[in-house]
C-alpha cells in the first residue's frame, strides 16, 4: 500500500523577490529537487500551503500562470506570523510548498468568449494567474478587459505588468484608485471599482466576468454586473476561509457543507447563491 505523507511539503528555493507595494512581495520559487519540479503541474485558480519551517504554513494562491512551467510564484501581503517571517527571507532561502489544492478557473470552457477581469487590492494575485494563462493563449478568447483598483497608487501591485498590459493592443486595461489615493501624475481613474465598472458599460453578451477582491467590493460589484445583464453562471469569484490542511480534513474552511479548500476556492455566482453565509 502507498504510505505517503500528504502533509510533507516540497522544498522550494526563493529564486527572486519582487517588492510590489508596501508590505506586498512576490516570490518566484523553484523546486529544490528538479525531478519533483518536472512532475509538478497545476491549473490556474489553485492554491497551496507555503511553509516557513519553524513558523508554520500559510495559504496563498499560485500567482503564476499554469502555461509557464519550471517555477511558481506567490504574491502575499504581510499580515501575521508566517507572512511576517516570509517577508524577512532573502533570495536563496528555502521554504516549503504543498499543493496544488482546490478547483480551477475553467478557462477551457471560456474559449471564444470575452473576458472581463475585475480585481481589487491584494486580490490581483489569483487573477494574475488566470489573466496570464489566458493571455498566453490569447487567440482562443475574444475581448479581454481588466479593471483593477487599489486604495492608493502605491498599493497597486504588479506595476510592471500593468504597464505591459496597458501597452498591449489586445488588452483593455482600466486602473483606478480610491478617491484621495491618487498622486498628481496619476493618469488612471479615480473612484471605487463598482462605480468605474458602471462607467465602463460592460457588455454581458458572450462574456465571462471574474471578480476577486475584498468582500465589500464584491458585494457592490455584483449588482452592477446584474444591471448589465450578467447572469449568475457568467460570473466567477474566489472565496477565502482560514485553512490548515488544504485537503478537506482539518475541518475549518467549510461554508455549510462545502469545503473551500476542496470544492473551491473558485465558485460561480450561481454556486455562491446556494451557499449559506459563512465566509
Amino acid at each position: 500500500m502507498e504510505q505517503q505523507n500528504i502533509y510533507q511539503p516540497y522544498l522550494m528555493e526563493i529564486e527572486k523577490i519582487t517588492e510590489e507595494a508596501p508590505m506586498v512581495k512576490t516570490f518566484r520559487l523553484k523546486f529544490t529537487n528538479e525531478e519533483e519540479g518536472n512532475k509538478f503541474s497545476f491549473r490556474t485558480g489553485q492554491f497551496g500551503e507555503y511553509s516557513v519551517f519553524g513558523e508554520g504554513e500559510v495559504t496563498f494562491c499560485v500567482a503564476s500562470p499554469h502555461t509557464r512551467k519550471g517555477y511558481i510564484e506567490c504574491t502575499f501581503r504581510q499580515a501575521g506570523r508566517v507572512t511576517a517571517e516570509l517577508a524577512s527571507l532573502s533570495e536563496g532561502d528555502t521554504i516549503g510548498f504543498r499543493g496544488p489544492y482546490g478547483n480551477i478557473f475553467p478557462i477551457d470552457d471560456w474559449k471564444g468568449k470575452n473576458l472581463l477581469f475585475i480585481a481589487g487590492g491584494i486580490a490581483l494575485p489569483p487573477m494574475r494567474s488566470v489573466i496570464w494563462s489566458c493571455l498566453d493563449l490569447r487567440d482562443q478568447f475574444k475581448d479581454i478587459s481588466i479593471l483593477y483598483g487599489a486604495r492608493t497608487v502605491e498599493d497597486l501591485v504588479y506595476k510592471n505588468e500593468l504597464a505591459e498590459w496597458k501597452e498591449r493592443p489586445d488588452v483593455h486595461l482600466v486602473t483606478t484608485v480610491d478617491p484621495g489615493g491618487e498622486t498628481p501624475d496619476w493618469s488612471g481613474e479615480v473612484g471605487f471599482v463598482p462605480t468605474i465598472l458602471d462607467k465602463m458599460i460592460p457588455v454581458s453578451e458572450n462574456t465571462i466576468a471574474i471578480v476577486c477582491g475584498p468582500p465589500v467590493m464584491i458585494k457592490f460589484t455584483f449588482p452592477v454586473l446584474e444591471k448589465y445583464g450578467f447572469k449568475d453562471e457568467q460570473v466567477y469569484t474566489t472565496l477565502e476561509n482560514r485553512m490548515k490542511c488544504g485537503l478537506g480534513k482539518c475541518g475549518r474552511c467549510n461554508v455549510g457543507k462545502v469545503f473551500v479548500c476542496k470544492d473551491g476556492p473558485v465558485f460561480t455566482r450561481t454556486q455562491l447563491k446556494e451557499l449559506p453565509d459563512e465566509y
Binding site: 502533509y7 511553509s51 519551517f53 519553524g54 513558523e55 508554520g56 504554513e57 490548515k244 490542511c245 480534513k249 482539518c250 475541518g251 475549518r252
Partner: peptide
C-alpha cells in the same frame, strides 16, 4: 471529531511540525 491544527516547534537547528486536536 477529527478536526486538527498544525503547529511548528523548533530550536535553533531542528524542528518538527505537530498535528494537534482542534475544535469548531
Amino acid at each position: 471529531c477529527a478536526c486538527f491544527d498544525f503547529q511548528d516547534e523548533q530550536d535553533t537547528k531542528k524542528g518538527v511540525r505537530l498535528r494537534l486536536w482542534d475544535s469548531c
